[in-house]
Nucleic acid binder design. Structure first.
Length: 682
DNA sequence: TACGTGGCGCTTTTT
DNA sequence: GCGCCACGTA
């Protein structure tokens, strides 16, 4: 008798990932939810990233083609890391997932369709510095005499434009409500705007807002293109939805219009970007726009000790505008309440932080598990000096942006004129690097080349009559341009950077800067990084869109890593609270928790902005896993050497005092012969 | 017209 | 304590 065996063809799909075991109930239901719109309210430390990552893995394992998944995150790094984690989970190639920030995905899509919105595919992306310069030129062109009558600075104008764009408002409507003191200048500001818009189009350049605006325009005004992308993205996931603005929400709605498989994840209590148009009501109105949306909540906090969470909850509960939430700590108490440390002044504050960090280090906490957070960059000044004095290695995640330093901008400007010969800002910058060429000469030369069909070819012509007086320097410049577009170097950004360095720029740096060697090293690293790009334009886009966040994924070098030369060493992190979003450390110090500093006096216009500052405070507290130290100076000496009494932050008063442990700091008297490190007694 | 020096005014957060 | 702008000089 033969046993009959039937091979079952239709076995239930076997998933590689054990979703049930890896996730809690809340996360599991999010990850395995069916199709259709999903709203996920995820508290701080509730494993939101995990839920999103597993959701993507689930989709892939369920047979969704990775190239039809759109994953929008707040930073490009976040997207990269999530995709990498998905890859290790499902062990298949998921690099086709469309992941990144709104801006970087806009860039990828707009390159394909540039012509249909009157751009060329090699358009330049203007960073805020470039945009400012172009606005300055537009103010000038508008014939506005900025001296005769007080006219807002280019930076402020740029803010106004950006605010209007991101709120989807006309400038004339937004001025009275948000910039009443400039209302009388409305006609001039609108004129500058018209010139600026035209100028960007002529120069084949987009600023950050244009990337969003043009993406939306493309979807709305080119129905066949809109349909294509709405069809392409079968599943859409948006992280940090509370910090999206109106245009971004509209873009998502347009893209989701066909399949309606859109999952948005966010926490209204952590919305901290309204100053650039973020609109956390997007979360509240999601269900109005998607009536059939399923709602989920992640309220189990895996990150922080209950003592930290209690203080954070007490603080955020003062906000009127928020969804009620109860975050439950799962980690056990260690009986240690967050420490509140009044310091004599900012020097003592710095000494305390540095001293305490050394103690923690001795207790076995690596420096990389410690962060110092603050409201504004300059709050870290004294601390940086103290850390340097005591040889404590640190990295700063805020402040001067790497890609906005002069030497980086100089070198990338050469690449920019090659990639987009209409790039006015870049042309003027490189022209002014030629000795004896200043503003006037550079403008004159630009006038000549701006009308040319082929600006590069024109400059290379020997009879080009706009050359400046210093003929040798001009010859050198022409030779460099020739080299950059030679077949050997074209679209090889690494080779181009090397050529720029060897054709006089290195010498220029040595003659100009004290720290020329550091800058040259920066540029060599930049060249190193550039080597992986297949075209100059691709490389430039990456630089314009990536910020200087610097926690590197182990396997991949990113532009951020170039910034400080990798992170192989154990280093303390100094960061603005904004840049700390989404991150966590065992030990967190929040310094300058003084009223007027945090909340910042400038931001306290109305109750709305006070609530935003409070959310920022909440973000700061919820970064801490084990221990939290909040410090503030009692007096501050301002620049005119006046001492000003500081009050603790109002946010501290709002938290019941017994949720803090107050430390009183005393300094050991410095005896002869002892080391100069103050001993801090708690 | 390029580039060096003195006075004034003021610090938010960033794709 | 510093960066930006305006002015004067080569």
């Amino acid at each position: 008798m033969t046993k009959r065996y039937v091979i079952k063809r239709d076995t239930p799909r076997r998933f590689l990932v054990n979703y049930r075991a890896d996730l809690n109930d809340e996360q599991y239901s999010v990850v395995t939810a069916g199709a259709g719109p999903l709203l996920v309210i995820a508290g701080a430390g509730s494993g939101k990233t995990r839920a999103v990552t597993y959701r993507v893995a689930w989709l892939v394992e369920s047979g969704v083609d990775p190239s039809r998944i759109l994953l929008v995150t707040f930073t490009n790094r976040a997207a990269r890391e999530m995709i990498r984690r998905v890859e290790t989970l499902v062990q298949s190639d998921v690099r086709k997932i469309w992941g990144g920030t709104f801006h970087s995905i806009a860039n990828r899509i707009l390159r394909r369709h540039a012509q249909s919105i009157d751009y060329l595919p090699n358009f330049t992306i203007l960073d805020s510095e470039d945009a400012k310069e172009l606005i300055e030129l537009s103010i000038h062109d508008a014939g506005i005499d900025t001296k005769a009558r007080r006219f807002p600075k280019p930076e402020v104008i740029s803010d106004i434009f950006s605010f209007a764009t991101n709120r989807d408002m006309m400038i004339r409507d937004c001025l009275p409500r948000h910039y009443p003191h400039f209302e009388h200048l409305s006609p001039q500001i609108e004129q500058v705007d018209r010139i600026y818009q035209a100028r960007k189009l002529e120069r084949n350049a987009m600023d950050y807002d244009d990337l969003l605006l043009n993406w939306k325009r493309l979807l709305v005004e080119k129905p066949e293109t809109g349909d294509y992308w709405a069809d392409q993205f079968q599943y859409i996931l948006v992280d940090e939805y509370q910090d999206t603005n109106k245009i971004q929400a509209e873009i998502i709605d347009l893209l989701a219009s066909r399949h309606r498989n859109v999952m948005v994840v966010g926490d209204d209590a952590q919305s901290i970007y309204s100053f650039r148009g973020a609109h956390f009501a997007n979360i509240y109105t999601f269900k109005d726009r998607y009536a059939d949306a399923q709602e989920f909540r992640l309220e189990t906090n895996y990150r922080s000790r209950p003592e930290i969470l209690m203080a954070a909850n007490a603080s955020i509960s003062q906000n009127r505008k928020q969804l009620p939430k109860t975050l439950r700590a799962v980690r056990p108490s260690i009986g240690q309440a967050p420490a509140l440390i009044p310091c004599r002044d900012s020097d003592q504050q710095a000494a305390f932080v540095a001293g305490r960090i050394l103690e923690l280090r001795q207790d076995g906490v690596p420096l990389s598990d410690i962060a110092v957070l603050y409201r504004s960059h300059w709050h870290a000044m004294e601390l940086q000096m103290e850390l340097t004095r005591r040889d404590i290695p640190y990295t700063v995640r805020s402040g001067i942006r790497f890609f906005e330093q002069a030497h980086i901008k100089d070198v990338t400007s050469y690449l920019r004129i090659v990639a987009n010969p209409k790039d006015e800002i870049a042309w003027k910058r490189v022209l002014k690097l030629i000795p004896s060429v200043g503003n006037a000469t550079a403008s004159r030369i630009w006038e000549r080349i701006s009308f040319a069909e082929e600006p590069l070819a024109l400059v290379l012509r020997s009879d080009f009559e706009a050359r400046p007086r210093a003929a040798d320097a001009w010859q050198e410049f022409v030779k460099l341009i020739e080299g950059l577009i030679s077949p050997d170097n074209i679209d090889r950004p690494a080779a181009q950077i090397a050529l720029i360095l060897s054709s006089g720029y290195e010498a220029y740096l040595e003659n100009t800067y004290e720290n020329a060697d550091l800058r040259i090293e920066d540029l060599r690293q930049l060249a190193n990084y550039a080597a992986r790009f297949g075209s100059t334009q691709e490389f430039l886009s990456e630089l314009a869109l990536v910020n200087t966040e610097r926690f590197s994924a182990p396997q991949t070098t990113t532009a951020e890593d170039v910034v400080m030369g990798g992170d192989e060493d154990e280093k303390l992190v100094l960061s603005s609270v904004h840049q700390a979003k989404g991150l966590e450390w065992k030990e967190v110090f929040l310094i300058w928790a003084a009223d007027g500093k945090f909340p910042s006096a400038r931001s306290l216009r109305d109750s709305e902005s006070e609530e935003e500052e409070r959310r920022l405070f909440y973000v700061a507290l919820t970064r801490a896993k084990d221990e939290l130290y909040i410090t503030y100076p009692l007096v501050v000496t301002d620049w005119s050497r006046q001492t000003v009494i500081q009050k603790p932050s109002r946010f501290i008063y709002e938290v019941p005092r017994d949720l803090f442990e107050v430390w009183s700091v005393e300094e050991e008297s410095i005896d002869a012969g002892s080391d100069d490190t103050p001993q801090l007694i708690n």
